[in-house]
């Protein structure tokens, strides 16, 4: 088993730019190929502790970021390749790294249907997982990053993968994507936070990714059982609180923001029903990130409501 950090600088660059670097990410293997310095810098910073697959392993998602031809160089644009095809329009050079991470999400969002995929972050402490579903801008990633810096294990920032047979969540740990003000919030939350390249002026504004595999078990693949669904919502005005919410509308909200609940039909309904039925559901309204982390600690230590 080889870890990325074990490669020499030259070997790393060569593999990334020529054949592609096969990274083991949760249950999948991505092969990433790019000659761009910003991609090299980002992968180095954020994926250094990831395992590299062996030559000849089956590749789940083959992706590349490249600048091809004079036209793309002049216009400072590049293209994203999936399986050798270009599913998206050209990307401004300054957004290269954010787009790579976004493209890696897209691979799973579009192609994987062996799991129920919730649009959610997921974290764990003491082997019990908590799923944080959230609409964009609700503050799930900020909370996820802060928890990752507070001894929690980050299971995912974007996809909570629920295995239909067991109902357990399958870890898919990748860097946490932070936008605009939340970058500063996390930098002042902890000096240990390690960031990749910053992309300016994306459709989400300013985007930076935080290294999230900080826990000793970050790269373990065993599925975990879930104990709670917590719907985080950052609000500067509302009173902070961790409040129980109904299972039925938690079901509906999580299903609505799922990537493939309706695609899965009966399976989607059954998996969601079993999941929601076995967990407690909460709203977490916060403006102070330290308070929110405390509330999550309280929840997992069983002190909530005591």
């Amino acid at each position: 088993m080889a870890i990325l950090s074990q490669l020499s600088r030259d070997e790393f660059s060569t593999r990334l730019s020529v054949d592609g670097l096969p990274l083991k990410v949760g249950p999948y293997i991505y092969r990433v190929r790019s000659k761009l310095p910003t991609v090299e810098e980002g992968i180095r910073a954020l994926y250094n502790d990831f395992e590299i697959a062996t030559d000849g392993d089956f590749i789940d998602y083959d992706i590349a970021l490249q600048q091809k031809g004079l036209r793309q160089h002049i216009h400072r644009q590049l293209e994203f390749l999936f399986d050798g095809t270009t599913p998206f329009n050209l990307i401004p050079l300054g957004q290269a790294y954010a787009f790579l991470e976004w493209g890696m999400n897209w691979c799973v969002s579009i192609h994987a249907n062996e799991y129920l995929k919730l649009h959610a972050a997921a974290v764990a402490r003491n082997d019990s997982a908590i799923i944080l579903p959230g609409v964009p801008g609700a503050g799930k990633s900020t909370l996820c990053a802060a928890l990752g810096l507070s001894g929690w294990r980050v299971l995912s920032d974007e996809h909570a993968l629920i295995e239909p047979a067991s109902g357990h969540i399958v870890p898919l740990c990748r860097p946490v994507s932070l936008k605009n003000e939340s970058i500063g919030v996390i930098k002042s939350f902890s000096r240990d936070a390690c960031f990749g390249p910053v992309s300016e002026e994306t459709h989400k504004g300013r985007v930076a990714h935080m290294k999230a595999d900080l826990h000793s078990q970050s790269h373990q693949r065993q599925p975990l059982s879930t104990t709670a669904l917590v719907f985080p919502r950052y609000s500067p005005d509302d009173p902070q609180g961790l409040n129980k919410r109904r299972r039925t509308d938690s079901f509906l909200l999580a299903a609505y923001h799922s990537f493939n609940y309706s695609l899965l039909g009966d399976t989607g309904f059954n998996v969601m029903k079993n999941l929601v039925d076995q967990v407690e559901c909460f709203d977490l309204i916060y403006r102070d990130i330290d308070w929110a982390v405390d509330a999550m600690n309280t929840l997992v230590e069983g002190r909530h409501g005591a």
């Binding site: 109904r246 299972r247 039925t248 509308d249 079901f251 509906l252 009966d266 309904f269 029903k273 929601v276 039925d277």
Partner: peptide, 13 residues
């Protein structure tokens, strides 16, 4: 199918 955990609302698929 129904999911009815005994709340004021019920899920119907």
């Amino acid at each position: 199918r129904f999911y009815d955990p005994g709340e004021t609302t019920v899920i119907y698929y």
